[in-house]
Protein backbone atom coordinates (compact mmCIF):
# COMPACT_ATOMS: atom_id res chain seq x y z
CA UNK A 1 0.00 0.00 0.00
CA UNK A 2 2.99 2.34 0.21
CA UNK A 3 4.62 1.20 -3.01
CA UNK A 4 3.01 3.90 -5.22
CA UNK A 5 4.47 6.53 -2.93
CA UNK A 6 8.03 5.43 -3.69
CA UNK A 7 7.52 7.08 -7.08
CA UNK A 8 8.88 10.65 -6.62
CA UNK A 9 5.88 12.54 -8.02
CA UNK A 10 3.49 10.55 -5.83
CA UNK A 11 5.68 11.18 -2.78
CA UNK A 12 5.71 14.90 -3.54
CA UNK A 13 1.93 14.92 -4.00
CA UNK A 14 1.48 13.25 -0.63
CA UNK A 15 3.96 15.63 1.02
CA UNK A 16 2.16 18.66 -0.44
CA UNK A 17 -1.22 17.41 0.76
CA UNK A 18 0.27 16.59 4.18
CA UNK A 19 1.46 20.20 4.49
CA UNK A 20 -1.98 21.42 3.48
CA UNK A 21 -3.54 19.04 6.05
CA UNK A 22 -1.44 20.54 8.84
CA UNK A 23 -2.76 24.05 8.09
CA UNK A 24 -6.27 23.29 6.84
CA UNK A 25 -7.20 21.26 9.96
CA UNK A 26 -6.80 24.16 12.42
CA UNK A 27 -7.91 26.86 9.98
CA UNK A 28 -11.12 24.99 9.17
CA UNK A 29 -11.97 25.06 12.89
CA UNK A 30 -11.86 28.86 12.81
CA UNK A 31 -13.81 28.97 9.56
CA UNK A 32 -16.42 26.81 11.29
CA UNK A 33 -16.42 28.79 14.54
CA UNK A 34 -16.75 32.12 12.75
CA UNK A 35 -19.17 30.69 10.19
CA UNK A 36 -16.86 31.91 7.49
CA UNK A 37 -17.66 29.31 4.88
CA UNK A 38 -19.07 32.19 2.89
CA UNK A 39 -15.72 34.01 3.01
CA UNK A 40 -13.91 30.85 1.84
CA UNK A 41 -16.38 30.59 -0.98
CA UNK A 42 -15.96 34.25 -1.92
CA UNK A 43 -12.16 33.93 -1.84
CA UNK A 44 -12.12 31.06 -4.30
CA UNK A 45 -14.16 33.12 -6.75
CA UNK A 46 -12.04 36.26 -6.50
CA UNK A 47 -8.69 34.47 -6.39
CA UNK A 48 -9.52 32.86 -9.73
CA UNK A 49 -8.97 35.95 -11.93
CA UNK A 50 -5.78 36.63 -9.93
CA UNK A 51 -4.56 33.13 -10.68
CA UNK A 52 -5.28 33.57 -14.39
CA UNK A 53 -3.57 36.96 -14.61
CA UNK A 54 -0.57 35.54 -12.73
CA UNK A 55 -0.42 32.59 -15.11
CA UNK A 56 -0.66 34.79 -18.21
CA UNK A 57 2.10 37.03 -16.88
CA UNK A 58 4.53 34.50 -15.48
CA UNK A 59 3.45 30.95 -16.22
CA UNK A 60 2.87 28.44 -13.43
CA UNK A 61 5.18 30.35 -11.07
CA UNK A 62 3.14 33.51 -11.63
CA UNK A 63 0.07 31.72 -10.29
CA UNK A 64 1.42 32.00 -6.78
CA UNK A 65 1.95 35.76 -6.93
CA UNK A 66 -1.40 36.32 -8.69
CA UNK A 67 -3.28 34.28 -6.09
CA UNK A 68 -1.45 36.03 -3.25
CA UNK A 69 -2.32 39.52 -4.45
CA UNK A 70 -5.95 38.65 -5.24
CA UNK A 71 -6.32 36.78 -1.93
CA UNK A 72 -5.00 39.60 0.24
CA UNK A 73 -7.06 42.24 -1.63
CA UNK A 74 -10.18 40.11 -1.18
CA UNK A 75 -9.44 39.56 2.52
CA UNK A 76 -9.17 43.31 3.07
CA UNK A 77 -12.25 44.10 0.97
CA UNK A 78 -14.37 41.45 2.73
CA UNK A 79 -13.28 42.72 6.14
CA UNK A 80 -14.24 46.30 5.29
CA UNK A 81 -17.54 45.36 3.65
CA UNK A 82 -18.74 42.93 6.33
CA UNK A 83 -17.74 45.43 9.00
CA UNK A 84 -20.05 48.10 7.65
CA UNK A 85 -22.76 45.49 7.22
CA UNK A 86 -22.71 46.24 3.49
CA UNK A 87 -22.06 42.63 2.55
CA UNK A 88 -24.21 39.65 3.24
CA UNK A 89 -24.73 36.24 1.84
CA UNK A 90 -27.31 37.39 -0.66
CA UNK A 91 -27.99 37.67 -4.36
CA UNK A 92 -26.11 40.91 -5.06
CA UNK A 93 -22.97 39.46 -3.52
CA UNK A 94 -23.39 36.28 -5.52
CA UNK A 95 -23.62 38.38 -8.67
CA UNK A 96 -20.31 40.12 -7.89
CA UNK A 97 -18.59 36.81 -7.16
CA UNK A 98 -19.92 35.19 -10.31
CA UNK A 99 -18.74 38.21 -12.28
CA UNK A 100 -15.22 37.78 -10.86
CA UNK A 101 -15.30 34.12 -11.79
CA UNK A 102 -16.52 34.91 -15.32
CA UNK A 103 -13.74 37.46 -15.68
CA UNK A 104 -11.26 34.68 -14.91
CA UNK A 105 -12.86 32.38 -17.47
CA UNK A 106 -12.89 35.16 -20.09
CA UNK A 107 -9.18 35.77 -19.51
CA UNK A 108 -8.32 32.07 -19.82
CA UNK A 109 -10.45 31.65 -22.93
CA UNK A 110 -8.12 33.99 -24.84
CA UNK A 111 -5.49 31.27 -24.75
CA UNK A 112 -5.27 28.42 -27.24
CA UNK A 113 -4.69 25.85 -24.49
CA UNK A 114 -7.92 27.05 -22.94
CA UNK A 115 -9.41 23.75 -21.73
CA UNK A 116 -6.23 22.35 -20.24
CA UNK A 117 -5.46 25.62 -18.44
CA UNK A 118 -8.94 25.96 -17.05
CA UNK A 119 -8.80 22.42 -15.70
CA UNK A 120 -5.49 23.22 -13.99
CA UNK A 121 -6.89 26.27 -12.24
CA UNK A 122 -10.14 24.68 -11.22
CA UNK A 123 -8.86 21.31 -10.09
CA UNK A 124 -5.13 21.81 -9.55
CA UNK A 125 -2.20 19.63 -10.49
CA UNK A 126 -1.24 17.75 -7.39
CA UNK A 127 0.81 15.21 -9.34
CA UNK A 128 3.14 17.80 -10.83
CA UNK A 129 4.08 19.52 -7.57
CA UNK A 130 7.71 20.63 -7.77
CA UNK A 131 10.22 20.70 -4.90
CA UNK A 132 10.09 24.50 -5.15
CA UNK A 133 6.29 24.47 -4.74
CA UNK A 134 6.70 22.20 -1.71
CA UNK A 135 9.14 24.65 -0.18
CA UNK A 136 6.75 27.56 -0.80
CA UNK A 137 3.87 25.66 0.76
CA UNK A 138 6.06 24.85 3.78
CA UNK A 139 6.94 28.52 4.26
CA UNK A 140 3.28 29.52 3.99
CA UNK A 141 2.35 26.77 6.46
CA UNK A 142 4.77 28.16 9.04
CA UNK A 143 3.40 31.70 8.54
CA UNK A 144 -0.23 30.54 8.76
CA UNK A 145 0.33 28.43 11.88
CA UNK A 146 2.24 31.32 13.47
CA UNK A 147 -0.61 33.76 12.76
CA UNK A 148 -3.14 31.27 14.14
CA UNK A 149 -1.16 30.57 17.28
CA UNK A 150 -0.79 34.24 18.15
CA UNK A 151 -4.38 35.16 17.35
CA UNK A 152 -6.22 32.01 18.44
CA UNK A 153 -7.31 33.12 21.89
CA UNK A 154 -8.59 36.51 20.77
CA UNK A 155 -10.28 35.03 17.70
CA UNK A 156 -12.11 32.40 19.74
CA UNK A 157 -13.34 35.09 22.13
CA UNK A 158 -14.42 37.25 19.17
CA UNK A 159 -16.17 34.34 17.45
CA UNK A 160 -18.10 33.38 20.56
CA UNK A 161 -19.00 36.85 21.84
CA UNK A 162 -18.12 39.79 19.57
CA UNK A 163 -19.52 42.47 21.87
CA UNK A 164 -17.87 40.92 24.92
CA UNK A 165 -14.52 40.74 23.13
CA UNK A 166 -14.83 44.36 22.00
CA UNK A 167 -15.82 45.36 25.55
CA UNK A 168 -12.68 43.62 26.81
CA UNK A 169 -10.62 45.82 24.51
CA UNK A 170 -9.99 43.47 21.56
CA UNK A 171 -10.06 45.19 18.16
CA UNK A 172 -12.72 43.29 16.24
CA UNK A 173 -11.93 44.79 12.83
CA UNK A 174 -8.29 43.76 13.04
CA UNK A 175 -9.16 40.28 14.27
CA UNK A 176 -11.52 39.80 11.33
CA UNK A 177 -8.85 40.94 8.90
CA UNK A 178 -6.39 38.61 10.62
CA UNK A 179 -8.57 35.56 10.06
CA UNK A 180 -9.58 36.57 6.51
CA UNK A 181 -5.89 36.88 5.62
CA UNK A 182 -5.19 33.48 7.15
CA UNK A 183 -7.97 31.93 5.06
CA UNK A 184 -6.68 33.74 1.96
CA UNK A 185 -3.18 32.36 2.59
CA UNK A 186 -4.58 28.82 2.83
CA UNK A 187 -6.32 29.32 -0.51
CA UNK A 188 -3.04 30.60 -1.98
CA UNK A 189 -1.08 27.67 -0.54
CA UNK A 190 -3.54 25.09 -1.83
CA UNK A 191 -4.60 26.52 -5.17
CA UNK A 192 -1.87 25.00 -7.34
CA UNK A 193 -2.23 21.53 -5.86
CA UNK A 194 -5.99 21.12 -5.52
CA UNK A 195 -7.38 24.02 -7.54
CA UNK A 196 -9.75 26.75 -6.49
CA UNK A 197 -12.90 24.63 -6.47
CA UNK A 198 -11.63 21.92 -4.19
CA UNK A 199 -9.81 24.15 -1.72
CA UNK A 200 -13.20 25.06 -0.26
CA UNK A 201 -13.57 21.42 0.77
CA UNK A 202 -10.31 21.59 2.73
CA UNK A 203 -11.52 24.69 4.56
CA UNK A 204 -14.97 23.43 5.47
CA UNK A 205 -15.29 19.66 5.58
CA UNK A 206 -12.58 18.83 8.21
CA UNK A 207 -14.15 20.92 10.99
CA UNK A 208 -17.71 20.01 10.03
CA UNK A 209 -16.75 16.32 10.16
CA UNK A 210 -14.77 16.43 13.40
CA UNK A 211 -17.52 18.47 15.12
CA UNK A 212 -19.59 15.29 14.84
CA UNK A 213 -17.30 13.51 17.30
CA UNK A 214 -15.96 16.24 19.54
CA UNK A 215 -16.79 19.70 20.85
CA UNK A 216 -13.24 20.54 21.90
CA UNK A 217 -11.58 22.98 19.52
CA UNK A 218 -7.98 21.63 19.70
CA UNK A 219 -9.26 18.07 19.21
CA UNK A 220 -11.35 19.28 16.26
CA UNK A 221 -8.23 20.80 14.68
CA UNK A 222 -6.12 17.67 15.17
CA UNK A 223 -8.90 15.41 13.95
CA UNK A 224 -9.43 17.63 10.91
CA UNK A 225 -5.75 17.35 10.01
CA UNK A 226 -5.91 13.59 10.50
CA UNK A 227 -8.94 13.33 8.23
CA UNK A 228 -7.22 15.26 5.43
CA UNK A 229 -4.08 13.10 5.79
CA UNK A 230 -6.16 9.96 5.58
CA UNK A 231 -8.10 11.29 2.59
CA UNK A 232 -4.87 12.38 0.87
CA UNK A 233 -3.39 8.91 1.25
CA UNK A 234 -6.55 7.06 0.26
CA UNK A 235 -7.43 9.45 -2.57
CA UNK A 236 -3.97 9.37 -4.15
CA UNK A 237 -3.83 5.59 -3.81
CA UNK A 238 -7.26 5.26 -5.41
CA UNK A 239 -6.36 7.49 -8.35
CA UNK A 240 -3.06 5.64 -8.82
CA UNK A 241 -4.73 2.25 -8.70
CA UNK A 242 -7.47 3.39 -11.06
CA UNK A 243 -5.04 4.53 -13.73
CA UNK A 244 -2.28 1.92 -13.30
CA UNK A 245 -4.36 -1.19 -12.63
CA UNK A 246 -7.61 -0.44 -14.42
CA UNK A 247 -6.54 2.08 -17.03
CA UNK A 248 -9.09 4.81 -16.36
CA UNK A 249 -8.21 8.25 -15.14
CA UNK A 250 -9.44 9.53 -11.79
CA UNK A 251 -8.29 13.09 -11.04
CA UNK A 252 -6.17 12.86 -7.90
CA UNK A 253 -7.36 16.02 -6.15
CA UNK A 254 -11.01 15.16 -6.69
CA UNK A 255 -10.41 11.63 -5.42
CA UNK A 256 -8.92 13.14 -2.25
CA UNK A 257 -11.90 15.45 -1.76
CA UNK A 258 -14.36 12.63 -2.43
CA UNK A 259 -12.75 10.52 0.31
CA UNK A 260 -12.89 13.53 2.63
CA UNK A 261 -16.59 14.04 1.96
CA UNK A 262 -17.17 10.31 2.38
CA UNK A 263 -15.51 10.50 5.83
CA UNK A 264 -17.85 13.38 6.67
CA UNK A 265 -20.90 11.41 5.59
CA UNK A 266 -19.79 8.42 7.66
CA UNK A 267 -19.49 10.67 10.72
CA UNK A 268 -22.92 12.28 10.33
CA UNK A 269 -24.75 9.46 12.21
CA UNK A 270 -22.24 9.78 15.06
CA UNK A 271 -23.06 13.46 15.31
CA UNK A 272 -26.76 12.68 15.45
CA UNK A 273 -26.16 10.19 18.27
CA UNK A 274 -24.05 12.72 20.18
CA UNK A 275 -26.73 15.35 19.92
CA UNK A 276 -29.41 12.98 21.12
CA UNK A 277 -27.26 11.96 24.08
CA UNK A 278 -26.77 15.58 25.05
CA UNK A 279 -28.97 16.63 27.96
CA UNK A 280 -32.57 16.24 26.80
CA UNK A 281 -34.59 19.42 26.94
CA UNK A 282 -31.75 21.51 25.52
CA UNK A 283 -32.25 20.31 22.00
CA UNK A 284 -33.94 23.49 20.89
CA UNK A 285 -30.76 25.39 19.97
CA UNK A 286 -30.45 26.32 16.35
CA UNK A 287 -28.21 23.70 14.83
CA UNK A 288 -26.00 24.55 11.90
CA UNK A 289 -28.24 23.10 9.28
CA UNK A 290 -27.78 25.52 6.39
CA UNK A 291 -26.35 23.57 3.49
CA UNK A 292 -24.07 26.51 2.87
CA UNK A 293 -22.27 25.74 6.12
CA UNK A 294 -21.26 22.38 4.79
CA UNK A 295 -20.66 22.69 1.10
CA UNK A 296 -19.61 26.34 0.78
Amino acid sequence: MIEPFTVPFMARALAELALLAVIAGPVSVFVFARRLSFVSDALTHTVFPGVVVGYLAGGIDGVFAGALVAGIVTAIALTLLTRGGALSDDASTAVVLTAMFSLGVALVSRRSSYTADLTTFLFGRVLTVTPRQLAETAVLAVIILGLLLVGARAMIFRSFDPVGAAAAGFRIGWLDLWLNVVVALVVVAAVRAVGIILVVALLIVPAAASRMVTARLPVMAALGTGLILLSAYAGLLASWTASVEYGFSLTSASAVVLVLVLAYLLLVPLGAVRRRRRAPGHGTHAERSSPHELVG
Binding site: A33, F160, H285
Partner: peptide, 12 residues
Protein backbone atom coordinates in the same frame (compact mmCIF):
# COMPACT_ATOMS: atom_id res chain seq x y z
CA UNK B 1 -24.31 40.07 27.66
CA UNK B 2 -27.73 38.51 27.35
CA UNK B 3 -27.25 34.77 27.02
CA UNK B 4 -29.63 34.74 24.03
CA UNK B 5 -27.18 36.86 22.05
CA UNK B 6 -24.62 34.05 22.05
CA UNK B 7 -24.32 30.99 19.81
CA UNK B 8 -25.38 28.07 22.02
CA UNK B 9 -23.81 25.61 19.57
CA UNK B 10 -20.35 27.15 19.88
CA UNK B 11 -17.89 24.44 20.94
CA UNK B 12 -16.55 25.84 24.21
Amino acid sequence: PQTDSLDADFPV
